[in-house]
Design a protein around this nucleic acid. Sequence first.
RNA 1: GCGCCCAUAGCUCAGCUGGAUAGAGCAACGGAUUUCUAAUCCGUAGGUCGGGGGUUCGAAUCCCUCUGGGCGUACCA
Length: 658
Amino acid sequence: MNALSELRSRFEKVLSELTSDPAPFVGMIKPTQDATFGDFQANCAMPLAKQRGTNPRSLAAEIVSKLAVSDLCHPPEVAGPGFINIRLKEDWLTERINAVVADPRLGVELAAKPKRVVIDYSAPNVAKPMHVGHLRSTVLGNALYRVFKFCGHQVVGDNHIGDWGTQFGMILFGYKNLLDAAAFQSNAVGELARLYRLVSQLSTYHDSKAELPIAETRRSQLETELKAAEATKAPNDKQAEKALKKLRTDVAEILDQIKTLNKQIETVESSQVLKALADAHPQIAELARLETAKLHARDEENTRLWNQFVPQCLAAIQGIYDRLDIQFDMTHGESYYNPLLAIVVEEMQKNGLAVESDKAICVFIPGNAAPFLIRKSDGAFTYATTDLATIRYRVKELNADTMIYVVDTRQSEHFRLLFETARLWGYGDRQFVHVNFGTILGKDNKPYKTRSGDTVGLESLLDAAVAKARQIVNENDDRKKDDAGNPTPELDDATRAVVAETVGIGAIKYADLRHNRESDYVYDEDKMLATTGDTATYMQYAYARVCGIFRKGSINRETLRQGAGQIRFTHPSERALSLQLLRFSEALDGVLSEFRPNILTDYLFATANSFSTFYQECSVLKEPDEATRTSRLLLCDLTARVIAVGLDLLGIKTCEQM
RNA sequence: GCGCCCAUAGCUCAGCUGGAUAGAGCAACGGAUUUCUAAUCCGUAGGUCGGGGGUUCGAAUCCCUCUGGGCGUACCA
């Protein structure tokens, strides 16, 4: 048990005498923000005194007097308006840290009540190559997957790929009408991706052509309105001021839209080849939709092509997963649930949850303006239907009690409606969580795109980061010198390549995980691969430095751990590092209770920092006193294990040597 | 129009179930190197937590309001 939960359980005994619901007050015991107040502080006396109408300081004193904690900390002190400050005893700390040395789980207990969790993450579309938009769901979801698993929960990682939608119809249409057979022969997936882009581009072109005049009409309308409003506006009329502002924004927006439309038209019309194709296929969007419908209706040819394409696309995606070290327990795409959809809709209509409206079948949830649409007016099902069928499958077949969706925050409304519908449908006893996250932005603070406006492919992103990492690895290794100042590079070419891959991929993942998931963040390669600061590299480097100690001292870490040596404190940095290492499980608890891996990145950064300070202050191999040397070696070993396991839980790898 | 989210140091961000002088990293400035890997460490400076009001012993955190931004808004997922 970690120090925090130990303290909390001791406090709970006392607090339960003072209140019928001690839980929120127990939660007010936290690590101190400022080390001068000790290691932990309890803030519960003030609010509890308010509740009981007594004096907070004397209540704090009363709590302290009843508290049985003399085995683990110094007598708690009451400070300020009623804070209780706690400093752990060295004896207790050394006992705990030595226990953790012998613990392969590093002091993290398995969950007492394991949950049956399904985590739905990554979910790319097979029709198009993975791009920057898939990064967060993949990285965040996999980190949560790993932490849940490590903490003893039964986890199913499910990749709910898009293999059944409109996009696939575009591929089918493209394959039948626009195929470059030679290209398909040499690189099938690449050609399918090109076809998707092409069909998508051509149908956008026709849409834009149709929309442009409408937008122009709207523009002149708005501009007229704006002029009139400007002319008639009385000074100091706040209402009119506001309306005017709104009009100006509207005009700016419509101009922007017209610009986009013109650009899309221009792109096609500036190319003779594209223009000819566009003219040859005026109904392309509709025909592509028809292909989708035929697929759904089990058309023989489309089914055959689907069976041929999907495995190839999946194999291509798998290449990226391998490189990112991402695993799933199952990959059930949308197609998997297709047979269940009609039943779901029928059932929901029968029990009155869903009704027909404008020829579509909808679930109306009170308090929500938009209905939850489970069948379109043309008879096709939507992703809402699929998601409902998926919930039923996960409950019935996988026995899930918790279902986690790692999906962009822009889909919040969908999940609110989905979860509410699921509750009405009879799954109110299950926990549903939308682990939402923000957008990855470019340096212009707009969604990250290439200069020409295309989405950025994930593969090229990885390649760029790894190439940059390779430069850094080269520079660093070439800089190494012996005492006489002669260069002594340590890494051969193959090793440098491995280190670069580890550092480059780690940098991307860490940059994603360290931010509060709900915030948007700016993708900045220079920053994530900076050789200084809060980056994966910093922790990977700390780990490599520890490994260097063992390598140089020819020390076997297993033997060391099983020896009779003990960790003891001879320097403040040893105590600080030990306390930090003992907080590992607190960090993991935090990740799971809030679904926030950034709590773990914070912890690991603080740990590596703590280690770096210790490393600076305390020599290990050169330490003459053998007991102290062994103590420090044990501390090094434990630090390395915590950092390596912690990074592994984030899906980030380490190198013995950098 | 309706709804959701955001605004914290020069920059990028933590902190948000209310708690002690608001924290990191980068950048700036000053120090540490006969190195167990300086891809490091130590220190200094930098903030009316967007503005205003309210609740409270106490507010970056909760409520109201204003301003500025982002996103979503029934048949794409």
